[in-house]
Design a protein around this nucleic acid. Structure first.
Length: 331
DNA sequence: AAGAGGACCAACCGCTCAATT
DNA sequence: GAATTGAGCGGTTGGTCCTCT
């Protein structure tokens, strides 16, 4: 016999999550940590499948998620990573720690595909004369396109190598730009500016909006935290400020996940600023046992691709000299 | 002002692989 | 080792919002 079933299939709620459900899930995870999704519906009373809880957390509620408009650098990275990796959104998302695979996938399908198709259409006219080769990228295709079938293997190989070279250069560029952003020294929350152009509320904001009710039901609102609240703070940051303290403590005590003297008070204030890309957000250390790594110290072990990128910034590395057969396994 | 069509995005579905019993 | 589930992934769908006519 196998494991017991994750949840009853009957009586499971579907559709959009309500703010109440979000709060229930978030507060449960803050107390118990993510994982063991099977027990989440039972322990929280949520009428949701464990899978739905996990998805809601990873795609929407998890701290450190950046929402809203993609930057040019992110866009660039996605395009080139997609060209290199295909539609492996989770793998692509691992290079953009603040974006979820779902987000990237959606962005690709709604924006970038069209963008690239347009570019392809434009370049197609030139291609008849100049033999440029970009087609196939927009669909994540790594094999010769139909128009290239007459090409000899040697020609195709050279083309592939040139493409790889181009993609690599652009990716290096994008990564170095991205690193500049990520490696910015931590800015105190009070000095951070919100530069987001997001048109919809972040998950933190969604939760923060509900917190008054949540706080009413909880007697834990600490007096000491409210004493230090400056009158200039917004209602939302005040709420966050009150909210985060016991929860952070809970994490600290239960999971030993906070290793240094991070400013706990800034936790949800940072979090509520939509543009968490301004610095490495503290929550990445709070939730560091999760799949989403901090770019700085939680990058996955260097894969071939990453070694290739970081060890050989000149773009003249072994891959360029690799035969198609050898490189095939990597793409 | 209204409705039709498109764009966008959160959530679901179905599959695979690893883990568990 | 077989049976079964959990977790994760990519593809797809459906609801909502926006834009155009």
């Amino acid at each position: 016999m196998g494991r017991p079933p994750c949840c009853e299939k009957i009586g499971v709620k579907k559709g959009p999550w309500t703010p109440e459900e979000d709060i229930t899930l978030v507060s449960y995870i803050q107390q118990n940590g993510p994982g063991n999704w099977r027990s989440v519906p039972t322990n929280t009373g949520l009428l949701r499948c464990s899978k739905s809880c996990r998805l809601r957390w990873t795609n929407y509620l998890r701290p450190g998620i950046k929402r809203g408009n993609f930057t040019e650098q992110e866009e660039k990275m996605i395009i080139h990573l997609q060209a290199l990796l295909g539609n492996r959104w989770a793998a692509i998302a691992s290079y953009l720690p603040q974006r979820t695979d779902n987000d990237i996938k959606n962005y690709w399908n709604t924006h970038l595909k069209k963008k690239l198709n347009k570019l392809n259409d434009n370049s197609d006219h030139d291609e008849h004369h100049h033999h440029h080769r970009r087609q196939g990228y927009s669909k994540g295709c790594h094999s010769p396109s139909s128009s290239e079938t007459t090409m000899s293997k040697g020609q195709w190989e050279r083309r592939l190598q040139t493409d790889i070279h181009m993609a690599k250069q652009a990716l290096c560029e994008a990564l170095s730009l991205d690193n500049k952003t990520i490696n910015l020294p931590q800015i105190p929350p009070s000095k951070q500016t919100t530069t987001t152009t997001s048109t919809y509320a972040s998950s933190a904001e969604n939760i923060a909006r509900l917190l008054p009710n949540w706080m009413n039901s909880s007697k834990k609102s600490s007096q000491t935290s409210s004493e230090s609240v400056e009158t200039t703070q917004t209602q939302s940051s005040l709420i966050n400020h009150q909210f985060q303290s016991p929860l952070i403590d809970g994490y600290e005590n239960n999971n030993n996940l906070i290793h240094n003297n991070q400013n706990n008070m800034s936790y949800y204030s940072n979090y509520s600023n939509s543009d968490v890309s301004q610095s490495v957000s503290p929550e990445t250390s709070v939730f560091q046992d999760e799949s989403k790594p901090n770019m700085e110290d939680q990058m996955p072990p260097l894969s071939f691709l990453e070694k290739w990128l970081f060890d050989d910034p000149s773009g003249q590395g072994d891959l360029m000299n690799m035969s198609m057969e050898e490189s095939d396994g990597f793409f």
